[in-house]
Amino acid sequence: MSTATFTQEGSSWALPRFMTAEHPFPWLAPITVMLLVFGIYPLAYSVWLSFHKRNVVSRQLDFAGVHQWARAFSDTRMWHSLETTLIYTFVALAVQLALGILIALLLDTDRKGYGILRALMTLPLVVPPAVTGMMFLLMQDGSFGVLSFYLYALDLISPAQPILTQPVTALLAILLADIWQWTPFMVLIILAGLRALPKEPFEAAAIDGANGIQTFLRLTLPMLRKVIAVAVLIRGVDLFRIYDYVYIITAGGPGTATETLSFYAGRIYFTGDFPYAATLSLIVLVVLIAVSNVFVRLFKVRF
């Protein structure tokens, strides 16, 4: 790339002054406008809704102060769904992270054929989550599901208590779909981190005679700390808003055993009580902002 290239075509690149400025404004203006219009408006509207109440007869929205918020905090179903969401998020994150690290280590080599394996490993990511839900529903069906069949054969589940009829196993059924679909995402991020690691410290460790596990715990893991932190943050946010799998696989059942907060908000939305649905959604938002802020600070995440 030579100077001549630029001066030659300089005239055709005569852009408005603000585009050539060193100021961040022109670079960030488009995205900011987009996010403000389509991001802030829904947020503001939801907040507005959460201070209103629907009159079911006139269908007007009347100002109701903190009615919806008080209702939410005294709603045992909300607390139960929050608890379910937290359990779900925590278990899924832990399993996806652990599996993600192990599989990434396994696939992190330049040997022949591993490129294909890495590509195949990403395949679950391209399946629409709604389809993933149906996929697992088909496999977990109590009568003809392939997964149910093997679980019966291994005596892990009794045919008298099919997987989706029991609170704990039903939650596991949804978790299984999530873990299947999103562990590959963790693998990708951690693989990328592994591949970007400098070689020297590992060579030094090898000379010092450190074994694989020591190297991993003392070198790899600390160096990957920040990669993992960002991965956990991004994944955690999505997990906390889990909707599709619950909707398709169990619809919150049995009872409300698998009802997550986001799904509960969806249910309320479906019945037309928009103000309360908005309030529940805002609780999701508030929890996420609070937790992720603490997380960013705690783990010194820099993007």
Partner: peptide, 15 residues
Amino acid sequence: ILSQRFMPPIAIVIP
């Protein structure tokens, strides 16, 4: 920018 992802989709639907 990241926090734009925090809102549950169902909450975006209404507005």
